[in-house]
Design a protein around this nucleic acid. Sequence first.
DNA 1: ATAGGGTTAG
Length: 692
Amino acid sequence: MHKIFGLKHTLIRIKPVKLSKNLFDHIKNTKSIHNYSTFEKSSKSVIIETEGRDAEDIWKDYKTLINANNLNKLNVTEFNRILGVFVKNLTIPGSYGKMLSIFQDMQEMTKVKPDESTYNIMMSMYLKKKDFKRINFCFDDMQKQNIIPNTITYNIMIKAISKLGKSDTAMSLYHEMVERKIRRNEKTFTMLFCACSARRNVPQAHQFYKFMLNEGLQPDIYTYNAYINVIARNAKDLKELQKAMDVIKQMNEKGVKPTLVTYNILIKALQSMGKRTEALHLFNQMELEGVKPNSSTLEGIGITGLQALLKLRNIYKVTPNHTDFNTCMDQSLKESKYTDAMEILSYMQESGFKPNVSTYSILMNAHIRQNDMIRAMELFTAMKNDNVEPDDYIYASLIDGFVAQNNVEQAFILVGHMLESKIELNKMTINRLIDTASKSKDPRLVQRVFERIERLTVPNKDACERVLWRIAQSYDIPVVEKYLKIMNKHNHIINRETFTAIITGASKGNNLNQARYWYNIMIGQGISPDHMLLSMMIRAHADAKIIDKTLSLWNDFHYFGIAPDDDDIMYVLNLCAEIGHWKDEIRILGQLKELGYDADSYKARITEKKQQSNDRIESKMDPDEEYYEEYGEYLKTRLANKSIIKAKERMQKWVRVVAKISSQKMDDNAKSRVEQWTPYRKQQLPITGTKD
DNA sequence: ATAGGGTTAG
């Protein structure tokens, strides 16, 4: 185990960097001269001047006004202006609380009614705080008071839902705006594109683009970038990315030039497709256009860390910004180039950038990756001394770090501190903890963490399922039942995802009896398996060479109208071939042919496999892969196979027309076909669970 | 006057 050299000195190196005093005074003075003249013009209504002034000074004035019992002198406009200062400076510790108390004072101490702007400002604050619940609350609340939301209100709402990833709400919010005759603008559409991007809904983005043009709105660079981003992020290949390039063509025609952001989006998309040459090509084009890169661009073409930073400075004459420094430092740390990381850190401070939450988080995470919680905690202290307010992310990293070390006590002491500083134990943190705990060899860890969480809040459904996944790996049915009851107690719906978690867990723990037990319970509850689950079951049983169960599961493809894909077919056929069940092999090949699969090619592949099996041992899938990750991979590979989609259509049609509608109308041929596929489950053969 | 937009930071 190597430690991070030099990181020890990090504490010493990080010192608060203050804006040069002269410069600061200069800004202050110039502003105040300017203010003086505006003050004279509108002096009659301004009680608390905000322009060019510190949030702290404004707060003092505000307090003075309260103490003198003069708060009534403020009108809505002025309240809004003051609130606006704090929302802009939300990163300054205490701003949030101040805003809340101003909003409260407004309603309780004065007779001033908040207007739509006040609500917009408050909603904007909650948006920055990622408190989506309260955004909704504000939205409802204002309308209860007959305040009509405006464009900005809706823009904030759309932005919020796009961060939440709620299904189809973007479209309904858009329709609501149209119905209520609330004007849409370019920003509205930018945010609608964002929502599409979050939900990977490219067709809807195209639809919004049409709407926008129909409404006579001209997309600007922001809108174009957001639109291009949806397309690029979801492009699987160059052909799909071409649609983004088409948008660029349209941009050029309208005289809107691609910017750094545009290029970054595209280069990143190319990088994730592994199209390095194309990425470099685009990079060259960008250089020709005179657009200067940043750290993200360079990352896209494989230049990272200190090298990237120096390149920016020396070749492109770009002054790196906060993000650039942080990004490059993180890259260096991840590449174990610790001295580089430290050099970046000092370079950053010399350039006048104070370490911010991200900087600290990056450094702390580097220590946590090395299991060095002591140094991570030292940085945590240093950070607070530095007046950088820890956020939920920082707490999550630390708490998670302790959980990873099996130190539940320390972890929850920190949770306590977090709650004290008004940061809630949110879903992200809980899921991270449970996730880490569930990876432990010791199954009791996740139970302990879960119990502690339960004392503080209602664990969300994902967390419960993650626990079930882990429990099913190490314990038998009664323990799983116990946790299902807990889940039920918390009013979570037990659905296919829940069973999938249990069944996947049980399979991972090689407890196939239990896996089948819950699989049957699930079906008994009227929930059908989906393709992922069925594949997983087939694979687990085929690996264990349990032929009868594998064949039963194979029938389920038909029974539930799910088309098996290449992997499924090969797993089953391989097993048949391996243990010499040639009758089943032939039967299956026949079924495949009937369904329109290319049975001959499967046959050929099996024969080939048989010949090869003497020479080499098949490498199995990595059993340690997490099922969530598997699911994502699964979707990627399976969606691409068009022949399978066709077969699926055919099969579903067949199931509908032949098997489901009416058996009386079937001809003999069809009857025998269906019989051949008769699901074992119709007779409800006990597929043994506990009784086994 | 006050609130809302694009990518990559932990």
